[in-house]
């Protein structure tokens, strides 16, 4: 009897020990995880920067036009990658994520963060900015300017160019005239009027600039913007973002 009891007690203890141990061991395996804590490195970070003086494959970034928006010291005025409808759509999406908090979705500079006290950025539709080469916008996103922090860590290079392309489209949209709207879509403009719905074609921001002196009239004449024919001028048709 005594022996049996002892055996049962030992068995129970073993079961309890096994149950307590197995869960944690398998749940938390001793390996590095993203942004995990390390007690080995002085900065307590498991994530390590690349060894100094090394370049990872595919990270040479030799094309200065693409990676800095500059050629020598001059800002590029031609997009270093083809501007397609897909790029513009991507640009709109990324602009609305990363830029709209301050610049707002139209580029006027009345975003929520500005409303909460951040220094207001200039409207993207002032003459000075409409006349800047595309490299300027890429450079500002990459390195920041004035109160604006840099977004190099948050936005990959191709996305930055997509945003620049979309900023150009936004700029065009704010200067668009009825003549720029394809005839088959003009009906939508008239329909929009009585309901009083704000649309970029009948802007809430009435006169950002007096006339619309964008060089030429079509999107294709913007320096460097090789817009395909189906590309929208920012949102003339007032479609919701996809």
């Amino acid at each position: 009897m005594r022996v049996e009891r002892k055996a049962a007690a030992v068995g129970l203890l073993l079961c309890a020990a096994a149950a307590a141990a197995c869960r944690q061991e398998m749940y938390n395996q001793p390996r590095y995880k993203p942004l995990g804590r390390s007690d080995f490195f002085a900065d307590n970070r498991q994530a390590r920067p690349p060894v100094e003086g090394t370049v990872a494959r595919g990270m040479l970034r030799a094309d200065s036009r693409l990676y800095t928006g500059k050629e020598g010291n001059a800002l590029v005025s031609v997009f270093p990658l083809p501007v397609t409808r897909a790029l513009l759509d991507r640009g709109r999406q990324r602009y609305n994520i990363y830029c709209a908090p301050c610049h707002d979705r139209t580029g006027a500079g009345n975003g929520m963060v500005v409303q909460r006290g951040y220094r207001q950025p200039p409207s993207l539709h002032i003459d000075r900015l409409r006349e800047q080469p595309v490299g300027h916008f890429f450079d500002v996103i990459t390195n920041g300017l004035g109160a604006m922090p840099d977004y190099a860590a948050q936005i990959p290079v191709e996305d930055r160019w997509a945003i620049v392309a979309y900023v150009r489209a936004l700029q065009l949209s704010q200067g668009a005239r009825v003549g720029d709207v394809p005839p088959e879509s003009r009906g939508e403009l008239d329909r929009a009027k009585p309901t009083g719905e704000p649309s970029p074609a009948s802007p809430e921001y009435p006169t950002l600039y007096k006339s619309a002196p964008i060089r030429g009239s079509g999107a294709g004449s913007v320096p460097g913007a090789q817009l395909d024919p189906g590309a929208p001028a920012g949102g003339v048709k007032a479609k919701p973002p996809k």
Binding site: P101, V113, R116, G117, Y118, R119, A147, P149, A153, Q154
Partner: peptide
Amino acid sequence: PTKTCMNCHSQI
């Protein structure tokens, strides 16, 4: 990274 917080909270 903390930098992202500071994008806004350097001023706000």
